[in-house]
Write a protein that binds this DNA or RNA. Structure first.
Lengths: 143, 143
DNA sequence: CAAGCTCATTAGCTAGGCTAATTAACGTGA
DNA sequence: TCACGTTAATTAGCCTAGCTAATGAGCTTG
């Protein structure tokens, strides 16, 4: 019982912290015309290397038609390329172009800057706590 | 060791963890027809007690016309009420109705449930780390 | 090899975001 | 005191992002 209550209280506090921090980080928008959804899709593609539209839609938790639109925008900007699937002609392989990788890195840097600046002002002890927390949270997010 | 991790590296890892967890939590959508923006605005109103449209727009980091739309939807559903400002007739006071508070609590509960369940499966030690991390992150988000 | 499934896309809708323009009310200085 | 500038909220009009339903092309299997 004590454990359950504790988990619930922790969930409230943690979610609040995460929601606020996420909004705060998100509003540090770099100049440029990539929307959040586009950047997010580009990020997922980047991390995975290459994905089909269906796979990318699943990763991004949107429906396939939605991903078609987003990928369309990214392709227009030359950040993502569609290539045929080697064995299944229904499918398509999506991957970031070289330009896509460059643009992604720029955005990512801008978005991390504010957070890195804040973190630099914490004590080493606090950073260590966050370090371990980040690993635990990654684990939880994968569940 | 891990203590040597730079603020930049920590920022990357932490943001990744938070982004993923946020998406994961967000997708645990309760049955119902409140969108994320509507819920977010309702939450801010709830926390602040009462706000003008301009203030709410600032808190939510959107432009006033956008907030007009969102508040309009919430008002249609009877979750938020507009009342005249006591001294300035240009302004409006927004506040959650009783029904708004009830609906908000239901959504909030549903959104925390998944996370609480995950957290309950961690070790007490891990939860302790997250507890301290949450406090630090709240601090950072306020900066 | 026909029937049924899967993949991607298109069509058509709503919500949410923006800027520019509008309307109303406040406040102030000549 | 009243005309002018400022501020608050909304309206108008545009785009993106999300959805479901429908389409067409290509697999797969009985």
């Amino acid at each position: 019982m004590a454990e359950r209550t504790s988990a619930e209280q922790l969930a409230v506090g943690l979610r609040e912290a995460i929601t606020r921090l996420n909004r705060r980080v998100r509003q540090e928008r770099p100049v440029g015309d990539l929307t959040f959804s586009q950047l997010s899709a580009l990020t997922s593609l980047q991390l995975a290397g290459a994905l089909t539209p269906r796979e990318l839609a699943d990763v991004e938790r949107v429906q396939p038609p939605t991903m078609t639109k987003i990928v369309g925008k990214l392709e227009e900007r030359g950040l993502v390329a569609r290539t045929p699937h080697p064995t299944d002609r229904r499918q398509v392989i999506l991957a970031a172009t070289e330009q896509g990788r460059v643009v992604y890195a720029q955005f990512e840097k801008a978005r991390n800057e504010w957070l890195a600046k804040q973190l630099a002002e914490l004590t080493p002890d606090e950073r260590d706590t966050l370090e371990r927390a980040a690993q635990i949270l990654q684990q939880v997010a994968r569940a």
